[in-house]
């Protein structure tokens, strides 16, 4: 359901955005039609990998099961996950993502360095949509 948002595996995993050839704004999720900078006449939008690491802008967690369309097995006990908003310095953009499994809010701090890693989309189902991105403190065990 989301295509072209990330690429690669392992250490090569990267989020993908698009860069305006005219003003250099980088958009994530990708803009493929027109640059959203009102001061820019609009260049071509070219796919570009985002920085692999960034710093925690803020974080929280989901102590209760989110409603649909979030997919989760209601038969299983709820396992809270953390959400991390990460500031990417080069792109000057903040990107929200789930923390890698096992990372809790106790492991996090605003300003901490984290990296984008491959993750499993909750209830993803179809093979092409079963992957997503997670944020993980740099150097944390996978």
């Amino acid at each position: 359901m989301i295509t072209g948002w990330f690429t690669g595996e392992g250490d090569g995993f990267r989020l993908l955005g698009t860069r305006c050839s005219s003003c250099a704004s980088v958009f994530f999720p990708r803009e493929d039609v027109h640059c959203r900078n009102p001061h820019c006449a609009g260049g071509t939008l070219e796919e570009t990998p985002l920085s692999r690491t960034g710093r925690v802008w803020s974080y929280t967690d989901a102590r209760y099961r989110p409603p649909s369309p979030f997919a989760s097995d209601a038969e299983l006990p709820w396992e809270p996950y953390a959400l991390i908003a990460v500031e990417l310095a080069a792109e000057r953009i903040v990107v929200l993502g789930q923390a890698a499994p096992g990372i809790t809010v106790a492991d996090l701090a605003v300003g901490m360095e984290v990296e984008a890693v491959e993750g499993v989309l909750h209830g993803g189902g179809e093979a092409e949509s079963a992957t997503t991105w997670n944020w993980r403190p740099t150097g944390a065990a996978s």
Partner: peptide, 22 residues
């Protein structure tokens, strides 16, 4: 944001609150 991240409204409120604390 629900489908991909399970980011509810309170999740955003939590992000803003943590940011103020920091």
């Amino acid at each position: 944001r629900f489908w991909l991240l399970g980011a509810t409204n309170p999740a955003y409120f939590g992000l803003y609150a943590r940011r103020r604390m920091a």
